[in-house]
């Protein structure tokens, strides 16, 4: 996994994390309009960041939820536990 791919994936992780946090918050505060607004914003950013990533590196999601190109890229390495996130 090259540096550019990692950078895109890290951006997705950040957005995914913010969306997860807001999701949990909204589970107990479903009427919080400010949180809902921020969730919708993050969710949209997340979707477009994923689409951008998948266009280049293949699907992030299985079972038809990711974007699939002309070849079956799902089986491509590396899998999440194989990525070396260390800078050096």
């Amino acid at each position: 996994m090259n540096a550019q791919q990692k950078e895109m994936l890290l951006r997705i992780m950040e957005l995914q994390f913010a969306a997860t946090e807001l999701n949990l918050y909204l589970d107990t505060h479903p009427d919080d309009m400010r949180a809902l607004q921020e969730f919708r914003m993050r969710s949209q950013e997340l979707m477009s960041a994923k689409m951008e990533y998948e266009r280049v590196y293949g699907p992030l999601l299985n079972f038809g939820l990711g974007m699939t190109g002309r070849t079956w890229q799902w089986i491509q390495d590396p899998w999440p536990w194989e990525v070396n996130w260390r800078r050096s």
């Binding site: 992780m13 699907p59 992030l60 999601l61 299985n62 079972f63 939820l65 990525v83 996130w85 260390r86």
Partner: peptide, 14 residues
């Protein structure tokens, strides 16, 4: 459930 091909946190081991 569906799987996302990424970790929630960039876990590193030295």
């Amino acid at each position: 459930w569906v799987y996302q091909k990424m970790l929630q946190y960039p876990a590193r081991v030295r």
